[in-house]
Structure formats: C-alpha cells, structure tokens
Write a protein that binds this DNA or RNA. Structure first.
Lengths: 213, 213
DNA sequence: ACCAATCTTTAGGTGTGACTAAATCTTCGC
DNA sequence: GCGAAGATTTAGTCACACCTAAAGATTGGT
C-alpha cells in the first residue's frame, strides 16, 4: 500500500493523473492487482479514482506518500553516511526498511545526520510536516557550452550508472563547466577541477544541474 | 515464521520440548494458528513435531533462530549505542527491524559497534556461524549474603522494570555485594559503589550475576 | 462513425497466516 | 480404570495482496 502511494506520488508529481498501467509497470505488477488496490486506497480516502481515467492523490494520500519519501531518503542518507553503504546499493535496503522503521527512529536518524535537506542522490528530503524543497534544475544535456553549473541531483537509480558517476566525480555538489555539446544526441564534454569527462546524452539528461549566476 | 522459530528457541533453550499452548501464549496467538504453523515449519524441515507432545528445533531451525537472535541483539545494541534509544524501549523497534534488515546491514552495524558479544541487557549475541557465549550465572536472589558479584544479564523485557533498574544503577557490568537476604520471598539488599539498593525478590530473580572469585 | 487495438475492470482463483467452533487426544483425580 | 478437564488438532472462514482469463470501455485510424 505504501509502495503504491509513493509510486503514484512520483507519477503525478508534475500535475498529471496516473494510469493503472503506469502504476502496474512501475511496481512490476499485473494491471488487475493495481485496479484492486486502487479501489482499496480510494475507499481509504487516499486517492481519487475516475474509472478508466486515472488516479490522483488526495491531501491525505499525498501526506502519506511524503512521509514514506521522507523515511526512504533519510534511511538512504543514513546508510551512506553512517554505515558505509555506497549510493548505488542503498536503494533496496531502504525500500525494505522504510516499511519497518518507527517515526521515532526516523527522527533519530535525521538528528544524527544534522537534519539533512537532501539525500545522497540530491533528492530533497520532505520535512516531517510534508514540506519539500523545490529546486529548479536543468538537465546537463540542455546546458549551453561554456556555462558553469553545479550538479544538484542525479536522476537514476541504476547501480552501474551510479557507480560510473561516482568514479568520474560527477556527484551532487560537483561544479563543472560545459565544454562541448555534440549534436544528434551526441555526448557532452564537461570540465571539472580534476579534469575533463565525456558523458553520453542519456546520462547527461539525468544529471540535473543548477545554473550558477 | 521467524517469530515462531525465535520463540521455540527460547522455550526449548534449556532442553525441553515446546508445547503448542506455550508457543501460542508467548506469541499471543490462538492455538490452532500455532498448530497450522507447526505443520508448515515441520514440512520445511525446521522442527520436529511429535503430535500432542510438542516440538523441538532441527539443526536448520536452530540455525535460523540464532540468525534472528543475532539480528535482534545487534539491532538493539546499535539503537542504544548509536541512536540514543534506552534499553527499555528498543525491543519493539528491533522486533520489527529484524525482519527487514539484510545480512549486509547487520554485519555493518556489528562492525560499527566493534563486534560486541553482548547486547544492552547482557544477552549474548550469537556469531554469524551460530556460536553463542554461554555464561554461567546465578540469580541475585540466590546469592548468599556478603558475596560480591557482577550483574551479567537482566532477564526482563518489562519497560518499567528496566527503567527502574537503570535508575538504580543496576545494569550489566555493575559490581555489587549482597548485604542482606530477607526470608519468605523478602527483598535483597545490595551494596553498590554509589550506595545501597533494596530489590524485591521478583526483580532480584531476574538479575543474573556472575560470582567474582 | 465505426472497428480494431489498447487500456481497464470484473470474475474467479491461489497462498499465507490469522481466526472460531468442534472433534479428538491425553492426563489426572478419584 | 473411568470420566472430566485441559490440551491439541481438524474443519471451515476470512482478509490480504497477488495472479490469469475474460469482459467491457476508450481511443485512434480510416
């Protein structure tokens, strides 16, 4: 149930409704399973369902989703900074833990970390009241040549990609200058303090940057 | 399932078989639920069942129970020493977490703690291979007057008792001398470095001590 | 405007782990 | 050694969350 809310939150984050199929694909479940759960969640008042159209979260549903997101991101941050996990292998562990931890434990972890606002991937950590930072970013693939930016957020969960990025020094907080943008979905070349990197277009699209002024 | 194994382990720790009713009482379940689960666990080869007699764990079952016990005790120790939980309120949290943590996480917690051999209550933490320390102890209620002992283990999970004991300085590792043993289930008076304490018979029976030689 | 492809829901089934009620086994007092 | 009390198991349900198969709704192309 908690996984459904989280998924629907992500799917509707930018205003749309979530379709049964989208949810089923995201959770790797059969469509009828999703149909059934949607009914239960709608009865619980956590979402609105327009049959054959899609679902949106209610205020309660969004609140519950944000609570899970907070748990997940605090746990990830904790595992990385206190227990030596790497950012490419915390996801599954956090996915299981988020359903088992108490509110108290989450708050203690947050305190131990100094109440961080972002997790290791740069994703904002919702506050206990559901408020969440909204950082405006641009994909690296859309940054013009010669502009200097800072990586704010890495929008992939694929372990191989994350490992490569960590290796290359392309992590949230890294400052870089775009040196070259090849056309036709070509690679982006960026300059870091420690040297140059060539990043494929796919990956560059997942490096969300803030533009330094 | 994991809870059954742990419970049966505790009930059979000192050689006996565990009855359906004992298990049901310990887990707060109805007897038929236990009967059903016993059948499943027996089919899985985790325990021997003599119908109408009781159950004992097989080697596999004991191994699985010890793995859970290791998880539980490492988690409790971690919560207390790294996250500021007190020993009277870690149990429930650990009870939920032990089913969600990965082997990897448990080992990382253990490492972060310097591979402790005992949890905050003085209970031994099984090694990853299932080996477990066997400390021979005597209840404080059975220690003769004038003998000096060290509290090794506190055999209660009742939060009120644990809080009182922590307050009184009666925790594992504390050295004390028995000053007085009142008859007819009367209280025990003990001398600590920091003063005297009077402990009721019930509680004294749960303070397991090693006798200093 | 219809029909075919696609999406969604309904219908019906499975495994897990709980329950109550009832049947059966064991034990203990006399 | 019998009968009653208590322990245990069997029988039959239930809720949950998943599944497949099939029916029904929507949509886009002609």
């Amino acid at each position: 149930m908690e996984d459904y809310l989280k998924t629907i939150y992500h799917l509707t984050e930018h205003g749309e409704v979530a379709s049964t199929t989208d949810i089923a694909d995201a959770l790797d479940l059969a469509a009828p399973s999703v149909s059934g759960m949607i009914k239960r969640l709608a009865e619980a008042g956590l979402l609105e369902h327009l049959p054959y159209k899609g679902v949106t979260l209610t205020r309660d549903g969004r609140q519950a989703a944000l609570r899970m997101l907070r748990r997940h991101r605090i746990i990830e941050t904790y595992l990385v900074s206190q227990l030596g996990f790497t950012w490419d292998n915390v996801h599954d562990e956090a996915e299981k833990l988020e359903h088992a931890v108490s509110e108290d434990l989450v708050e203690r972890m947050s305190r131990a970390l100094g109440h961080p606002l972002f997790d290791p991937h740069g994703d904002p950590i919702p506050a206990a009241d559901g408020r969440i930072a909204d950082v405006s970013t641009t994909p690296l693939s859309d940054i013009p040549v010669d502009e200097q930016v800072t990586i704010a957020r890495v929008d992939t969960g694929v372990p191989d990609r994350l490992r490569w990025l960590a290796e290359a020094g392309l992590v949230p907080g890294t400052r870089l200058t775009v040196r070259d943008q090849q056309p036709f979905n070509g690679p982006v070349t960026v300059g870091l303090d420690i040297g140059q990197r060539v990043v494929g277009r796919d990956l560059a699209a997942q490096l969300l940057c803030t533009r330094d002024r």
